[in-house]
Amino acid sequence: MQKIVIIGAGAAGVSAAAALRQNGFDGQITVLGEEPALPYQRPPLSKAWLTSADTPRPTPIRPAGFFQDNRITLERGRKVVRLDREARQVTMRDRGAIGYDKLILATGASSRPIKVPGAGLKNVFYLRDLGHAAALREALGRADCRTVAIVGGGVIGLEVGSAAIAQGKQVTVVEAAARPMARVASPAVTNHVTRKLKAEGVAFIFNARVEEIMGRNGRATGLRLVSGAQVPADIVVAGIGALPNVGLAVQAGLGCDGGIVVDGAMLTTDPHVYAVGDCARAVNPFFGAPIRIETIHNAMSQALVAAAHICGKPLPPAAPPRFWSDLKGMKVQGLGIAAGYDRLQESTSEDDDAREIRLFSGDRLVAAETVNLPTRQADLAKALRPV
């Protein structure tokens, strides 16, 4: 085994390359990144990037010298258009094919498009990559941007809302569910977050669906909901989730089901191909069923597993999934999967700024959530056990 190719230069792909070297792999490693920028951290794009007074710069995942120092070939601006499993090679749009002995798919996910009339208007934004963040930051900074409508009350939607409120905008969040962040957090956390953000000026409309993005002269002017209600807006931000980038895997005949299907070693249905990060659907030891998790922690953890397996090393111990979000004075963090619990234990601070929530199934702690208690994460992680 002399050649490993990694498709994707995000946290999962770069972490896999670094872990291969750390595990002693001495052959060729090639990382193919679709974007022209040096691999960068995505979480800041919906946080400090949108609120910084100075023009922000991307935060590198690794400094430029890291790749040369570790003999990792990083090819930027490379779009892979075909995977040939029989020949064990991948074809790029503008360069031709390169072969591999092992392949790691770290293709990530893309913003789920909002499919309603008006979705193509100029001032409808998504937030997934550097280009999205730069365009949204510019729009928020314009003097004629006073009102912002956000479709989707997930983590990205609330972070954008927090950034917009910090800049003095009027913000309305339209969410199809009965509460925000329902996919990742318990009602105890989301109710607290809702109350705090409302106090800061964010308006919420729950159990609502968008029928149309209204526009005039090619620009969005607001939302029309199925109920008939209208939400005026100078810009619209769609944050309705992400779709795994499985196009190459599907084309190559790999097993896919809500993501690229992998086993506990991150192996796909081809013994020479692995998948890690946002594109992969794996059985999580702390959940007990296949699940696709879109966090930087999960991407890095899965990369370590794949690299260890390729190098014939023991797999690293399972770590509970975790997420974090900065929301207008709140650092919200979660451990485990907030599902399948039957008992909730909550403790709060006297000033209501900090709280800790533990979620149990019987006597087993299945998840823990904190607000403004970052030092609690290490102890809480030790208390969680796999299913």
Rank of each mutant, 00 (worst) to 15 (best):
I293A: 03
G255M: 13
A303R: 00
I293S: 01
I293L: 14
H309M: 08
I296D: 09
T269I: 13
I310Q: 03
P244T: 02
L243D: 12
F287T: 05
A299G: 08
I296G: 08
T269M: 15
I291K: 11
L248C: 07
F286H: 10
A252L: 10
I310G: 01
G259A: 13
H297K: 03
I296C: 07
L254I: 14
V262A: 13
V283S: 15
A280N: 07
I296H: 01
Q302E: 14
A303I: 02
P290A: 10
G255T: 14
V273C: 11
A282D: 10
L267P: 07
A249K: 00
Q302Y: 02
H272R: 15
H309D: 15
G255E: 15
G241N: 00
T295E: 13
A307Q: 00
H272C: 15
F286Y: 15
P271Y: 06
A306V: 06
G264K: 14
A242Y: 01
I291Y: 10
S301A: 11
P285R: 05
I296R: 09
G241Q: 01
T268R: 05
P285M: 06
H309Y: 08
M266S: 14
M300I: 11
S301M: 12
V246W: 01
G288P: 07
P271H: 08
I296L: 10
V246F: 04
P285Q: 06
P271R: 06
A252Y: 12
I296T: 08
A265Y: 10
I310C: 03
A289G: 14
N298G: 07
A249T: 04
A308R: 05
L243Q: 06
L304S: 14
H272Y: 15
R281F: 03
G259T: 06
D263S: 07
R281L: 09
A252P: 11
M266V: 10
T295S: 15
F287N: 05
L248G: 02
L248Y: 05
D257V: 04
A299L: 05
A299I: 05
V283C: 15
P271I: 09
H272P: 13
V273E: 02
P271K: 09
Y274Q: 09
G264M: 13
T269F: 09
V246L: 04
G253I: 04
I260S: 04
P271V: 09
A252G: 13
N284W: 11
G277T: 02
G259P: 02
I310W: 02
V305R: 00
P290Q: 06
G277S: 12
A275F: 02
F286R: 11
V246T: 14
V273A: 10
H272L: 14
R292M: 11
